[in-house]
């Protein structure tokens, strides 16, 4: 608590103006569902063998999370508190069924490659979590933005993992294989020996890559914290100095006045 109070002063001199903007972006890094809250780890491990499947999964989650947040927020006064959870489960399951059907119809390859993980969006803690902790308490607009932002952060994390795994296991990034893009290309295409680690494309790779990325995230957070701490100390020093200066001046002035 104390840290926050003080840190506010040097780091954020101006007030947050656009709250909706921060509402949207908070899921990107600061409250990233995967790297900070460890939500939805199952898909993060299973469908990130390539960047594209990660992106596809992310798109589905964006759809489900945004729409379920909207509906939950719309119905928040209608649904009695006693049956909140059952109602949310029904709403989420409905959207997941719909998104599953749509994927099978319009992105069949993606549907096949995601397999069981499409139904499993239902039990993704992220979606239920946003519904109970945010959408049930806020208005429709901010719920929609919150859901969209959180899902974007989720998608970004999946893509980051996917890119890492794909590049290290195959040395290239393929596009248009699973998603219905009008083209099918593969970029980067390196033949270097380092980029031939099959293991990272397999089951073990998921755990290891996420572990390493998580460590990097934590290290970054720690470094930031330390930097802020240093700055805070410096600021306090400065303030102290200023105060001392002022006091001395005042003393001098008062001494002068007195004289």
């Amino acid at each position: 608590m104390a840290e926050k109070k003080v840190a506010k002063n040097p780091m954020k001199p101006k007030k947050k103006k656009d709250t909706q903007w921060t509402n949207l972006t908070k899921g990107f890094i600061r409250e990233n569902p995967i790297f900070v809250f460890l939500l939805g780890m199952c898909p993060a491990l299973a469908v990130t063998t390539t960047m594209e499947t990660g992106l596809g999964m992310g798109l589905l989650v964006i759809f489900v999370l945004t729409s379920s947040n909207i509906v939950v927020s719309l119905l928040k006064d209608l649904i009695p508190k006693e049956v909140q959870i059952p109602a949310y489960i029904v709403i989420i399951a409905t959207f997941v069924t719909i998104v599953g059907l749509l994927t099978e119809a319009y992105a069949y390859e993606l549907h096949q490659s995601l397999g069981v993980f499409i139904p499993l969006i239902v039990v993704n803690c992220l979606i239920m979590g946003r519904a109970t902790s945010y959408a049930s308490k806020n208005d429709v607009k901010s719920s929609a933005i919150d859901g969209f932002g959180m899902a974007l952060g989720f998608t970004g994390a999946l893509m980051l993992i996917g890119v890492t795994r794909e590049i290290f296991s195959s040395g290239a990034i393929a596009l248009g294989v699973y998603l219905p893009f009008p083209f099918e290309i593969s970029i980067i295409n390196t033949e270097m020996y380092v980029f031939n680690m099959d293991t990272l494309g397999g089951p073990a790779g998921g755990f290891i890559v996420i572990g390493v990325l998580l460590a990097i995230f934590t290290a970054r957070g720690n470094a930031l914290k330390r930097k802020r701490e240093v700055e805070r100390q410096a600021w306090i020093e400065q303030k102290k100095k200023e105060a001392a200066e002022r006091k001395r001046k005042k003393d001098m002035e008062s001494a002068g006045d007195a004289a």
């Binding site: 089951p203 755990f207 290891i208 996420i210 572990g211 390493v212 990097i216 934590t218």
Partner: peptide, 23 residues
Amino acid sequence: VPESWKGVPVSLVTAGIMALAFL
């Protein structure tokens, strides 16, 4: 364990090695 690896990151890497064994 190095500070930034403490907790979940090192657990995940451990799980990865377990997965390798199960392979």
